[in-house]
Write a protein that binds this DNA or RNA. Sequence first.
DNA 1: TATTATATTATGTATGCACATATTATAATT
DNA 2: AATTATAATATGTGCATACATAATATAATA
Lengths: 230, 230
Amino acid sequence: MTANSHHNIRQVLRERIESGEWALGALIPGELALAVEYRCARTTINRALQTLADEGLVVRKRKGGTRVCQMPVRHAKFEIPIVREQVEVIGSKYRHQIMSQQKKTPTASVRTRLRIPDAKKALFMETIHLADERPYAYEERWVNIQAVPKIMDAPLDQISVNEWLVKTVPFSSGDVVFSAVNADKRVAGALESKVGNAIFLVDRTTWLGEEFITTIKLYYRDGYQLYSQL
Amino acid sequence: MTANSHHNIRQVLRERIESGEWALGALIPGELALAVEYRCARTTINRALQTLADEGLVVRKRKGGTRVCQMPVRHAKFEIPIVREQVEVIGSKYRHQIMSQQKKTPTASVRTRLRIPDAKKALFMETIHLADERPYAYEERWVNIQAVPKIMDAPLDQISVNEWLVKTVPFSSGDVVFSAVNADKRVAGALESKVGNAIFLVDRTTWLGEEFITTIKLYYRDGYQLYSQL
DNA sequence: TATTATATTATGTATGCACATATTATAATT
DNA sequence: AATTATAATATGTGCATACATAATATAATA
């Protein structure tokens, strides 16, 4: 790493912005000027500024120059969690248990949401994820067998569906919905919680191209918190 | 945009990965080989691959080469929401109402969490955010007056604290915790909900460098869902 | 055999240059 | 004055080159 790596320049520029030296929305010096100031090539400055633009710290326009973002957007990022890893991170022993597993015809609402033809059956599974033998999360899942026929042969007692899918059908797109729900009898029972308790629910659906892969509802145990840095 | 822009190359490479041409964890051709194949400079390939690495699609190691990520991590991103915008996006009319506003000494737990000296007071506020005159979110907030003295002069009846802070003290870092809680009497009252209902809670603290700026608890009305693409 | 030095290799980075492109400012035209 | 052409400018991009750096493979040594 040379003294003038674009990393260093980027960091210095970031600090000049964050310190308020350049106000919100203000125009900052052009690439050429900065290149002179830092005694480096314009390319290096360009690289640094482009990264800052990717991060949402500055906005760049041809001829218009580079200005500090008016309202820099901070993002909270979450990874698709593999429950096993979540459990192991908190230092607990992970185990999962399949409560039910059957091919059946999804309800109408699930079918339309997942664009599954009426006649087709899908795989429905209920799984309990345990941390130190205590319920950590309760999972309801539909899997599109047409899209992932191999799942019928997967050793789902050893590796959780979650993990098997992530490692087998990667690069899928999807959406996540977080919400809070009151535990009903079924969920409360599965989580050894009480009916009515506030449960953190993650509802996730993933696609491979246009094809539906899986949809899952994850009910976390009482007091679960999803943490993220900004 | 030339035919061989790193954007194009990146996209093509992405597709080769996502199509499964290169399996999970597999080594992909070196930069030089790809440069020959695509008839472009190694620099261009390098640029494309570095971006893919940033995205978490490949892992690169000097001498080791570039391999497809074993378990490509998809991220869910959330912006720090300005409640007004959340409300306006769903097509409702936004209004906020300050329920209380006072300087007072934070409780011990808040003080230690926020690293505020014992003697110092902070600004405590309760705000209701309304969508079409119905409660949308209930906000409890502590603001560090030492860090943001100007807040005492801000027109907080016109612009919400949230928005004023975001636009005045930008570039802060912070953390967010999402969880589900049962509404107590106070929260239920504020949201015109019922005691015990599951409430989606966002707990956010922001810092400017080492200095505490603000901490906020946002209780969203029943049925609120936080949505994100993967 | 085990350890250490050396060479090899793929990626990482900086630079100078040329040209592309979008946007703004200015001049020319109607 | 309004419209249209033209020039100026800041960023965007590609390329060839050179060297840096980390990790590995190979050879030399104890």
